[in-house]
């Protein structure tokens, strides 16, 4: 539509020149890249939309909404409010587990394992999709993540987090305790720190070497996205009018002020995803704006301008760091390629 493009602000330049985008018509719950390079978008209407090159396809994955998405060794794994854990690979849907009336709210995966959180339990499956163990928690699991080596699983819940060894014969987690409701979790790539988001607009952290507690507060809203930089030096977070980055070096984050990037007063940061190699972070905002921020130089590259697309609800990098998938609450989705041209 050449007549329209003249009116689009320059903030959309990258979206116009380097992206394949689509209006998917339902809340984008999560996005991820599969090993074959295709991007998957999990939607509130129960479908998984897959963007491969410029072609977009739709696969019916769940009866209700898709609640969680991860990429595993073969393709995509999704959890839904129909109680199912599904694998979507090669255009086929396979049910890996059916937890009945329990929502599958959390899914995480590595090349060798899949973890699915339903209620207070986490099922751990091997790459073939066979359940090898079930981990019990004191309350519902609100966040689920593997560490960078795929050896440990972290799960957040009321009054803290549990850290499990995937290969352990006897299942006793390391309990990271802090009173309150913890609603999300991240483990630094170097495996040194665990951080949770909390109900009361703050983060809590544990340094694993000595159990030192870390408290990061001052957010005007709840933090829903936590992402460590590849070198573990920075923790990028949503929940403020800017991208809030806590320094995990030089004695930080204790006693250090966070770095704030891409700040304004019109919108809240709603999602963050650190670049898989460089000290850079992609961030989405409540007005639909998406930016790529270089942490060292504090340079901001606009990816998508604000307005008309709803709040950003999902961002994911391809492991090669050249492509970024993004999605919004109104169903706008795009795959941006930073490499060509």
């Amino acid at each position: 539509m050449p007549g329209l493009s003249a009116h689009v602000s320059s903030a959309d330049h990258i979206l116009e020149t380097r992206a394949s985008s689509h209006d998917l018509g339902a809340h984008v719950v999560a996005c991820a890249f599969a090993p074959d390079g295709s991007a998957g978008f999990a939607l509130g209407d129960g479908t998984l939309r897959i963007a491969a090159d410029a072609a977009w396809t739709s696969i019916a994955a769940h009866e209700g909404a898709v609640l969680a998405l991860a990429a595993d060794a073969r393709g995509f794994v999704t959890g839904g409010d129909d109680g199912k854990l599904q694998r979507i690979a090669g255009g086929e849907v396979t049910t890996l587990a059916d937890f009945g009336s329990r929502w599958v709210e959390q899914v995480a995966a590595t090349r060798t394992h899949i973890a699915a959180g339903y209620g207070k339990r986490v099922a751990v499956l091997d790459a073939a999709g066979k359940t090898i163990k079930t981990l019990e928690h004191p309350s519902s699991v609100t966040g689920l993540v593997f560490d960078a080596k795929g050896k440990r699983i972290g799960a957040s819940h009321v009054n803290g987090a549990s850290l499990w060894f995937v290969a352990a014969k006897t299942d006793n987690p390391r309990k990271l305790e802090w009173k309150g409701s913890h609603t999300g979790i991240a483990i630094s790539p170097d495996g040194e720190n665990v951080v949770t988001a909390m109900q009361e607009n703050a983060l809590h952290g544990w340094r694993l070497s000595d159990g030192q507690h870390m408290r990061m507060s001052g957010y005007p809203a709840k933090t829903k996205a936590l992402s460590f930089s590849r070198n573990s030096k920075w923790l990028a977070t949503s929940g403020a009018e800017s991208i809030v980055l806590w320094p995990f070096f030089g004695g930080g984050p204790m006693g250090k002020a966070p770095t704030e990037l891409a700040g304004g007063d019109a919108a809240f940061c709603t999602f963050v995803a650190c670049h898989p190699q460089h000290e850079a972070v992609a961030a989405g905002f409540s007005d639909g704006m998406v930016v790529l921020a270089d942490i060292g130089s504090e340079r901001i590259l606009p990816v998508a301008g604000p307005g008309g697309r709803g709040a950003v609800t999902a961002l994911a990098w391809h492991p090669d760091g050249a492509r970024l998938a993004l999605g919004t609450e109104t169903g706008f989705a795009a795959v941006v390629d930073f490499s060509k041209q």
Binding site: G46, D81, T142
Partner: peptide, 17 residues
Amino acid sequence: TVRGDLIRIVGGLMKRR
């Protein structure tokens, strides 16, 4: 006191509202 499960459920339901 609040119900943590309801906060999550309302969030989930709103994705298919």
